[in-house]
């Protein structure tokens, strides 16, 4: 498992390099005097593959290939919940407006994911929302997304 994790960056980069080469098919390597639009993608893909192979080699030899550390199960759950919260937040912003969505996200993270005490959580959320309203909306006049059906 550990070795697999150590190899993940190399495997990822090799796939990415292949993806870049496929994605830039049809662009020119060389263009008149200068390298073309595909020159750097090609060069970098090659560099990515070489470096990935070097990483796999160090892994093979047992020399330094990084010390990956995975979170324990509750930790992983919290991170996943937070990610889900972020995605939901981004989905909700255009629908219910930024401030309400941010408030819900804060409360979700504080009360459900982190299991913080109720009163300080409400207080933190309130302070933050007021701060965002005052600084971004009132002062900098940034048009934050408003609810869809006002």
């Amino acid at each position: 498992m550990m070795r697999f994790l150590q190899a993940v960056p190399a495997l990822f980069m090799i796939c990415l390099a292949a993806g870049v080469m496929i994605g830039t098919a049809g662009l020119a390597f060389w263009d008149g005097f200068t390298p073309g639009a595909r020159f750097f993608p090609g060069l970098l893909s090659a560099a990515a593959v070489i470096l990935s192979l070097a990483l796999l080699l160090t892994l093979q030899r047992g020399t330094d290939a990084g010390r990956p550390e995975l979170p324990d199960a509750p930790g992983a759950r919290r991170v996943l919940a937070a990610m889900a919260g972020l995605v939901t937040l981004a989905l909700l912003i255009p629908v219910i407006g930024l401030l309400p969505a941010a408030g819900l996200f804060m409360l979700f993270l504080l009360l459900v994911v982190l299991r913080a005490a109720l009163l300080p959580s409400l207080l933190t959320t309130a302070i933050l929302l007021v701060g965002v309203e005052v600084i971004f909306v009132r002062w900098l006049a940034v048009p934050l997304p408003a609810p869809l059906f006002q």
């Binding site: 996200f105 993270l109 982190l114 913080a116 959580s121 933190t124 701060g131 934050l144």
Partner: peptide
């Protein structure tokens, strides 16, 4: 615990304000 969610929200609001794009 109380700082973390705030950092997330302010970062995202700041990022939005930079381009006004979701």
């Amino acid at each position: 615990v109380y700082l973390a969610p705030g950092i997330l929200v302010i970062s995202l609001v700041g990022a939005y304000a930079a381009t006004l794009s979701m």
